[in-house]
Simulated assay, not measured.
Amino acid sequence: MKSTFQALWVCLLFVVGCSTSSTVSPAAKQPRLPGPAKNAYFTNPIADGADPWVIKRNGAYYFCSAGKGGIYVSRTHSLTVPGDKVLVWATPDTGWNRSNIWAPELHYFNGKWYIYYAAAKKSGSPFIHQRSGVLESVGDDPFGPYTDKGMLYTGDSIAYATSAAKWAIDLTPLQLNGQLYAVWSGWEQNAATDKTKQHLYIARMSNPWTISSNRALISSPQEPWESGGELDLNEGPQVLKHQEKVFIIYSTRESWLKEYRLGQLTLSDTLLNPMDAGSWMKTGPVFQGTDKVMGVGHCSFTTSPDGTESWILYHSKKSDVPGWDRDVRAQEFTWSADGFPVFGLPIPVGVPQPLPSGQEEE
Protein backbone atom coordinates (compact mmCIF):
# COMPACT_ATOMS: atom_id res chain seq x y z
CA MET A 1 0.00 0.00 0.00
CA LYS A 2 1.41 3.36 -0.97
CA SER A 3 0.36 5.33 2.09
CA THR A 4 -2.06 5.37 4.98
CA PHE A 5 -4.20 7.84 3.05
CA GLN A 6 -4.55 5.55 0.10
CA ALA A 7 -5.24 2.53 2.31
CA LEU A 8 -8.11 4.37 4.01
CA TRP A 9 -9.42 5.51 0.63
CA VAL A 10 -9.44 1.95 -0.69
CA CYS A 11 -11.15 0.65 2.43
CA LEU A 12 -13.89 3.27 2.32
CA LEU A 13 -14.56 3.17 -1.39
CA PHE A 14 -14.63 -0.57 -1.79
CA VAL A 15 -15.67 -1.55 1.74
CA VAL A 16 -12.78 -3.98 2.05
CA GLY A 17 -11.16 -4.68 5.41
CA CYS A 18 -7.45 -3.90 5.45
CA SER A 19 -4.67 -2.71 7.74
CA THR A 20 -3.30 0.83 7.78
CA SER A 21 -0.42 0.07 10.10
CA SER A 22 2.21 -1.07 7.54
CA THR A 23 5.50 0.77 7.34
CA VAL A 24 5.77 3.16 4.40
CA SER A 25 9.02 4.59 3.10
CA PRO A 26 9.63 8.22 4.10
CA ALA A 27 10.77 8.69 0.53
CA ALA A 28 7.59 7.27 -0.97
CA LYS A 29 5.88 9.45 -3.51
CA GLN A 30 2.38 10.84 -3.06
CA PRO A 31 -0.40 8.34 -3.84
CA ARG A 32 -1.82 8.23 -7.34
CA LEU A 33 -5.49 9.01 -6.91
CA PRO A 34 -7.88 7.21 -9.24
CA GLY A 35 -9.02 8.82 -12.46
CA PRO A 36 -12.40 8.41 -14.06
CA ALA A 37 -11.41 5.43 -16.19
CA LYS A 38 -13.14 2.32 -14.95
CA ASN A 39 -10.32 -0.05 -15.92
CA ALA A 40 -7.39 1.91 -14.47
CA TYR A 41 -6.98 -0.74 -11.78
CA PHE A 42 -6.17 -4.40 -11.42
CA THR A 43 -6.75 -6.92 -8.66
CA ASN A 44 -4.72 -9.88 -7.50
CA PRO A 45 -4.16 -12.62 -8.40
CA ILE A 46 -2.81 -11.94 -11.89
CA ALA A 47 -2.25 -15.61 -12.76
CA ASP A 48 -2.48 -19.14 -11.47
CA GLY A 49 0.70 -20.96 -10.47
CA ALA A 50 3.85 -20.38 -8.46
CA ASP A 51 7.47 -19.18 -8.55
CA PRO A 52 6.83 -16.12 -10.75
CA TRP A 53 9.73 -14.85 -12.82
CA VAL A 54 9.60 -11.71 -14.96
CA ILE A 55 12.30 -9.76 -16.78
CA LYS A 56 11.82 -6.41 -18.52
CA ARG A 57 13.72 -5.71 -21.73
CA ASN A 58 13.21 -3.21 -24.58
CA GLY A 59 9.82 -2.12 -23.25
CA ALA A 60 8.36 -5.61 -22.90
CA TYR A 61 7.95 -8.04 -20.01
CA TYR A 62 8.94 -11.67 -20.41
CA PHE A 63 7.47 -14.17 -17.98
CA CYS A 64 9.11 -17.56 -17.55
CA SER A 65 7.48 -20.58 -15.92
CA ALA A 66 7.49 -24.36 -15.72
CA GLY A 67 4.56 -26.32 -17.04
CA LYS A 68 3.50 -29.58 -18.56
CA GLY A 69 6.26 -30.79 -20.83
CA GLY A 70 8.91 -28.18 -20.11
CA ILE A 71 9.59 -24.46 -19.81
CA TYR A 72 7.39 -21.65 -21.11
CA VAL A 73 7.93 -17.97 -21.94
CA SER A 74 5.33 -15.27 -22.58
CA ARG A 75 5.68 -11.69 -23.79
CA THR A 76 3.50 -8.73 -22.80
CA HIS A 77 3.56 -4.97 -22.35
CA SER A 78 1.29 -5.22 -19.31
CA LEU A 79 2.97 -6.24 -16.08
CA THR A 80 -0.36 -7.36 -14.64
CA VAL A 81 -1.33 -9.47 -17.69
CA PRO A 82 1.33 -12.17 -18.18
CA GLY A 83 0.31 -13.07 -21.75
CA ASP A 84 0.12 -16.34 -23.65
CA LYS A 85 2.69 -18.98 -22.78
CA VAL A 86 4.87 -20.53 -25.48
CA LEU A 87 6.80 -23.75 -24.93
CA VAL A 88 10.48 -22.90 -25.53
CA TRP A 89 12.13 -26.06 -24.22
CA ALA A 90 10.72 -29.56 -23.87
CA THR A 91 12.02 -32.00 -21.28
CA PRO A 92 14.09 -34.85 -22.73
CA ASP A 93 12.92 -38.45 -22.56
CA THR A 94 15.96 -39.48 -20.54
CA GLY A 95 18.68 -37.88 -18.46
CA TRP A 96 19.18 -35.95 -15.22
CA ASN A 97 16.65 -33.26 -16.26
CA ARG A 98 13.72 -35.30 -17.55
CA SER A 99 11.31 -34.49 -14.66
CA ASN A 100 10.33 -32.12 -11.86
CA ILE A 101 11.10 -28.85 -13.65
CA TRP A 102 11.03 -26.13 -10.99
CA ALA A 103 11.27 -22.34 -10.87
CA PRO A 104 12.91 -21.40 -14.21
CA GLU A 105 14.40 -17.92 -14.58
CA LEU A 106 15.10 -16.05 -17.83
CA HIS A 107 18.19 -13.81 -17.99
CA TYR A 108 20.02 -11.88 -20.72
CA PHE A 109 23.82 -11.77 -21.06
CA ASN A 110 25.96 -10.61 -23.98
CA GLY A 111 23.34 -10.94 -26.70
CA LYS A 112 21.88 -14.26 -25.60
CA TRP A 113 19.15 -15.48 -23.28
CA TYR A 114 19.76 -17.99 -20.51
CA ILE A 115 17.23 -20.03 -18.54
CA TYR A 116 18.27 -21.36 -15.14
CA TYR A 117 16.09 -24.13 -13.74
CA ALA A 118 15.97 -27.13 -11.42
CA ALA A 119 15.13 -30.66 -12.57
CA ALA A 120 15.44 -34.32 -11.63
CA LYS A 121 16.07 -37.71 -13.21
CA LYS A 122 13.00 -39.20 -11.53
CA SER A 123 9.50 -37.77 -11.33
CA GLY A 124 7.53 -37.10 -8.19
CA SER A 125 8.53 -37.43 -4.57
CA PRO A 126 10.71 -37.89 -2.68
CA PHE A 127 12.36 -34.87 -4.25
CA ILE A 128 15.92 -36.01 -3.63
CA HIS A 129 17.34 -35.75 -7.16
CA GLN A 130 16.95 -32.03 -7.86
CA ARG A 131 19.92 -30.39 -9.57
CA SER A 132 20.33 -27.07 -11.39
CA GLY A 133 20.89 -26.58 -15.11
CA VAL A 134 21.02 -23.86 -17.74
CA LEU A 135 19.79 -23.37 -21.30
CA GLU A 136 21.31 -20.92 -23.81
CA SER A 137 19.43 -19.34 -26.71
CA VAL A 138 20.88 -19.94 -30.16
CA GLY A 139 20.26 -16.31 -31.10
CA ASP A 140 18.86 -13.13 -29.56
CA ASP A 141 15.32 -14.47 -29.20
CA PRO A 142 13.82 -15.27 -25.77
CA PHE A 143 11.52 -17.79 -27.47
CA GLY A 144 14.50 -19.85 -28.59
CA PRO A 145 15.54 -22.26 -29.84
CA TYR A 146 17.66 -23.15 -26.81
CA THR A 147 20.72 -25.35 -26.38
CA ASP A 148 20.96 -27.44 -23.22
CA LYS A 149 24.25 -26.47 -21.58
CA GLY A 150 23.91 -29.19 -18.98
CA MET A 151 23.97 -29.49 -15.22
CA LEU A 152 25.67 -26.75 -13.21
CA TYR A 153 28.33 -27.66 -10.70
CA THR A 154 26.99 -27.07 -7.16
CA GLY A 155 29.37 -28.92 -4.88
CA ASP A 156 32.52 -28.86 -2.80
CA SER A 157 34.98 -30.68 -5.10
CA ILE A 158 35.40 -28.64 -8.27
CA ALA A 159 37.88 -31.14 -9.70
CA TYR A 160 35.07 -33.68 -10.03
CA ALA A 161 32.48 -31.19 -11.25
CA THR A 162 29.15 -32.78 -12.28
CA SER A 163 29.77 -36.06 -10.49
CA ALA A 164 30.15 -34.10 -7.25
CA ALA A 165 27.10 -31.86 -7.69
CA LYS A 166 24.92 -31.45 -4.62
CA TRP A 167 21.14 -31.06 -4.41
CA ALA A 168 20.37 -27.56 -5.73
CA ILE A 169 17.31 -25.53 -6.72
CA ASP A 170 16.32 -21.91 -7.39
CA LEU A 171 19.66 -20.87 -8.89
CA THR A 172 19.94 -17.21 -9.87
CA PRO A 173 22.89 -15.14 -11.18
CA LEU A 174 24.47 -12.14 -9.43
CA GLN A 175 26.69 -9.65 -11.26
CA LEU A 176 28.98 -7.67 -8.98
CA ASN A 177 32.13 -5.68 -9.67
CA GLY A 178 32.70 -7.36 -13.02
CA GLN A 179 32.32 -10.88 -11.62
CA LEU A 180 29.39 -13.21 -12.23
CA TYR A 181 28.19 -15.42 -9.36
CA ALA A 182 25.54 -18.10 -8.93
CA VAL A 183 23.34 -18.11 -5.82
CA TRP A 184 21.07 -21.04 -4.99
CA SER A 185 19.35 -23.15 -2.34
CA GLY A 186 20.97 -26.47 -1.51
CA TRP A 187 21.61 -29.25 0.93
CA GLU A 188 24.79 -29.67 2.95
CA GLN A 189 24.96 -33.26 1.66
CA ASN A 190 22.84 -35.30 -0.71
CA ALA A 191 20.28 -37.29 1.29
CA ALA A 192 17.76 -40.10 0.99
CA THR A 193 14.92 -37.89 2.28
CA ASP A 194 13.57 -34.56 1.07
CA LYS A 195 12.93 -33.59 4.70
CA THR A 196 16.40 -32.04 4.65
CA LYS A 197 17.37 -28.53 5.76
CA GLN A 198 18.07 -26.05 2.92
CA HIS A 199 20.74 -23.35 2.93
CA LEU A 200 21.83 -20.56 0.57
CA TYR A 201 25.11 -20.98 -1.31
CA ILE A 202 27.15 -18.83 -3.68
CA ALA A 203 29.92 -19.64 -6.19
CA ARG A 204 31.88 -17.82 -8.88
CA MET A 205 31.02 -18.28 -12.55
CA SER A 206 33.44 -18.00 -15.48
CA ASN A 207 30.55 -17.48 -17.90
CA PRO A 208 26.74 -17.76 -17.74
CA TRP A 209 26.83 -21.56 -18.06
CA THR A 210 29.87 -22.50 -15.98
CA ILE A 211 30.37 -22.43 -12.21
CA SER A 212 34.10 -22.21 -11.63
CA SER A 213 34.56 -22.50 -7.86
CA ASN A 214 33.46 -24.55 -4.91
CA ARG A 215 30.35 -23.27 -3.22
CA ALA A 216 30.35 -21.07 -0.12
CA LEU A 217 27.59 -21.06 2.51
CA ILE A 218 26.09 -17.61 3.11
CA SER A 219 22.83 -18.32 4.97
CA SER A 220 21.23 -21.03 7.06
CA PRO A 221 17.74 -21.01 8.61
CA GLN A 222 18.79 -20.14 12.15
CA GLU A 223 16.72 -17.12 13.15
CA PRO A 224 13.47 -17.65 15.11
CA TRP A 225 11.40 -16.30 12.20
CA GLU A 226 12.94 -18.75 9.69
CA SER A 227 13.13 -21.93 11.78
CA GLY A 228 11.20 -24.05 14.23
CA GLY A 229 8.54 -25.43 11.90
CA GLU A 230 8.23 -28.77 10.14
CA LEU A 231 11.35 -28.14 8.06
CA ASP A 232 13.86 -25.27 8.14
CA LEU A 233 14.33 -23.77 4.68
CA ASN A 234 16.22 -20.97 2.93
CA GLU A 235 15.29 -20.99 -0.75
CA GLY A 236 14.22 -18.90 -3.74
CA PRO A 237 17.03 -16.29 -3.55
CA GLN A 238 16.50 -13.21 -5.72
CA VAL A 239 18.93 -10.36 -6.34
CA LEU A 240 17.75 -6.79 -5.79
CA LYS A 241 20.01 -3.75 -6.27
CA HIS A 242 19.41 -0.14 -5.26
CA GLN A 243 21.60 2.88 -4.47
CA GLU A 244 24.87 0.93 -4.42
CA LYS A 245 23.32 -1.71 -2.19
CA VAL A 246 22.94 -5.39 -3.01
CA PHE A 247 20.16 -7.47 -1.45
CA ILE A 248 19.29 -11.13 -1.66
CA ILE A 249 15.60 -11.53 -0.90
CA TYR A 250 14.84 -15.17 -0.15
CA SER A 251 11.99 -17.39 0.98
CA THR A 252 11.95 -19.15 4.32
CA ARG A 253 9.79 -21.43 6.47
CA GLU A 254 7.80 -24.18 4.73
CA SER A 255 6.61 -23.49 1.17
CA TRP A 256 3.46 -25.58 1.69
CA LEU A 257 2.36 -23.75 4.85
CA LYS A 258 0.82 -20.33 5.47
CA GLU A 259 3.92 -19.25 7.41
CA TYR A 260 6.06 -19.04 4.24
CA ARG A 261 7.68 -15.58 4.14
CA LEU A 262 10.60 -13.50 2.84
CA GLY A 263 13.92 -12.73 4.51
CA GLN A 264 16.70 -10.42 3.40
CA LEU A 265 20.49 -10.55 3.13
CA THR A 266 22.24 -7.21 2.64
CA LEU A 267 25.80 -6.89 1.41
CA SER A 268 27.14 -4.38 3.91
CA ASP A 269 29.73 -3.08 1.43
CA THR A 270 29.75 -3.96 -2.28
CA LEU A 271 33.56 -4.08 -2.21
CA LEU A 272 33.50 -6.94 0.30
CA ASN A 273 33.71 -10.55 -0.79
CA PRO A 274 30.14 -11.84 -1.35
CA MET A 275 31.40 -15.40 -0.82
CA ASP A 276 32.15 -14.56 2.79
CA ALA A 277 29.06 -15.10 4.95
CA GLY A 278 30.28 -12.32 7.24
CA SER A 279 29.79 -9.81 4.43
CA TRP A 280 26.01 -10.31 4.57
CA MET A 281 23.62 -8.89 7.16
CA LYS A 282 20.41 -10.87 7.69
CA THR A 283 17.07 -9.22 8.56
CA GLY A 284 13.50 -10.40 8.49
CA PRO A 285 10.89 -11.19 7.92
CA VAL A 286 10.66 -8.37 5.39
CA PHE A 287 7.42 -9.56 3.75
CA GLN A 288 4.98 -12.02 5.29
CA GLY A 289 1.37 -13.06 5.18
CA THR A 290 -1.68 -11.86 7.05
CA ASP A 291 -4.96 -13.55 7.94
CA LYS A 292 -6.12 -12.71 4.38
CA VAL A 293 -2.94 -13.39 2.38
CA MET A 294 -1.11 -16.56 3.33
CA GLY A 295 2.22 -18.13 2.48
CA VAL A 296 3.84 -15.29 0.54
CA GLY A 297 7.13 -16.22 -1.07
CA HIS A 298 9.37 -16.92 -4.06
CA CYS A 299 9.40 -13.48 -5.63
CA SER A 300 10.94 -11.61 -8.53
CA PHE A 301 11.37 -7.89 -9.11
CA THR A 302 10.89 -5.40 -11.93
CA THR A 303 9.82 -1.81 -12.58
CA SER A 304 6.67 -0.21 -14.00
CA PRO A 305 6.52 0.38 -17.77
CA ASP A 306 7.80 3.95 -17.36
CA GLY A 307 10.50 2.87 -14.89
CA THR A 308 9.32 5.10 -12.02
CA GLU A 309 8.00 2.38 -9.70
CA SER A 310 9.42 -0.79 -8.15
CA TRP A 311 7.26 -3.92 -8.22
CA ILE A 312 7.40 -7.33 -6.58
CA LEU A 313 5.77 -10.43 -8.03
CA TYR A 314 5.27 -13.31 -5.62
CA HIS A 315 3.12 -16.33 -5.07
CA SER A 316 0.68 -16.94 -2.26
CA LYS A 317 -1.38 -19.87 -1.05
CA LYS A 318 -5.06 -19.94 -2.01
CA SER A 319 -6.06 -21.21 1.43
CA ASP A 320 -4.56 -22.21 4.76
CA VAL A 321 -4.74 -25.90 3.81
CA PRO A 322 -1.20 -27.34 3.64
CA GLY A 323 -0.12 -27.85 0.03
CA TRP A 324 1.09 -26.12 -3.11
CA ASP A 325 -2.16 -24.69 -4.48
CA ARG A 326 -0.94 -21.13 -5.22
CA ASP A 327 -1.40 -18.11 -7.42
CA VAL A 328 0.73 -15.20 -8.63
CA ARG A 329 0.33 -11.66 -7.33
CA ALA A 330 1.85 -8.25 -8.08
CA GLN A 331 2.33 -5.26 -5.82
CA GLU A 332 4.26 -1.99 -5.85
CA PHE A 333 6.87 -1.49 -3.12
CA THR A 334 8.86 1.54 -2.01
CA TRP A 335 12.29 2.39 -0.61
CA SER A 336 13.32 3.85 2.71
CA ALA A 337 15.31 7.07 2.88
CA ASP A 338 18.49 5.05 3.45
CA GLY A 339 17.89 2.79 0.44
CA PHE A 340 16.28 -0.36 1.85
CA PRO A 341 13.20 -2.01 0.29
CA VAL A 342 9.89 -1.48 2.08
CA PHE A 343 7.38 -4.16 1.07
CA GLY A 344 4.59 -3.33 3.52
CA LEU A 345 1.74 -5.83 3.79
CA PRO A 346 0.43 -8.05 0.98
CA ILE A 347 -2.77 -6.66 -0.51
CA PRO A 348 -5.73 -9.08 -0.35
CA VAL A 349 -7.45 -10.63 -3.35
CA GLY A 350 -10.05 -8.34 -4.94
CA VAL A 351 -8.72 -5.05 -3.55
CA PRO A 352 -8.22 -2.70 -6.54
CA GLN A 353 -4.70 -1.37 -7.07
CA PRO A 354 -3.74 1.34 -9.58
CA LEU A 355 -2.11 -0.06 -12.68
CA PRO A 356 1.69 0.19 -12.84
CA SER A 357 2.69 3.68 -13.93
CA GLY A 358 2.85 3.96 -17.71
CA GLN A 359 0.76 0.85 -18.33
CA GLU A 360 -2.23 1.32 -20.58
CA GLU A 361 -5.67 0.71 -19.12
CA GLU A 362 -6.87 -2.87 -19.39
Rank of each mutant, 00 (worst) to 15 (best):
E136R: 15
S219N: 05
D93G: 14
A165P: 03
P26N: 02
F42N: 07
T43E: 11
N39H: 09
G358P: 13
I249V: 15
M1E: 06
G263M: 01
C64I: 00
D148W: 12
A203P: 02
W324C: 10
Q30H: 09
L345G: 01
H77T: 15
K317E: 05
G124L: 06
P145V: 08
D338N: 12
I312L: 08
I46H: 01
E362Y: 11
Y314C: 03
Y72G: 09
Q243Y: 03
P305K: 00
L87D: 05
F42L: 06
S19E: 14
V54T: 11
V286Y: 01
T23C: 04
Q264Y: 00
Y61S: 06
Q6V: 01
D140E: 13
W9C: 00
V246K: 02
L345W: 13
L13A: 10
K122V: 07
T172Y: 03
S125P: 04
C18W: 04
Q331S: 08
V73A: 15
Q198K: 05
Y153Q: 04
K38L: 12
L272W: 03
A191K: 12
L231H: 08
W335N: 09
L257F: 05
K195G: 07
D48R: 13
S125W: 08
V239A: 02
R261N: 13
G295K: 04
S227V: 07
W9F: 14
Q264D: 06
P341F: 06
S336Q: 06
V88L: 06
K282N: 04
T20P: 05
G229M: 06
Q179P: 01
L200F: 11
A28R: 11
G95Y: 10
P145F: 06
D170S: 01
A182I: 00
C299P: 02
S220W: 02
S213N: 07
P341K: 10
E309K: 13
G35M: 02
L217I: 04
S279G: 02
G49A: 10
V342Q: 12
E235Y: 05
G17N: 12
P305I: 11
Q222V: 14
K258C: 08
S255C: 12
A216W: 00
F14K: 04
E361H: 15
D156W: 02
S268P: 01
M205R: 00
G284I: 06
S319H: 10
G144I: 12
G278L: 07
G339N: 04
A161Y: 06
G307V: 10
Y201G: 02
W187S: 02
W89F: 13
T270S: 12
R204E: 15
W324K: 01
E235R: 11
Y160E: 13
T196H: 05
G49I: 01
S227G: 05
S137D: 09
R57G: 01
T94A: 13
S163N: 12
G69M: 08
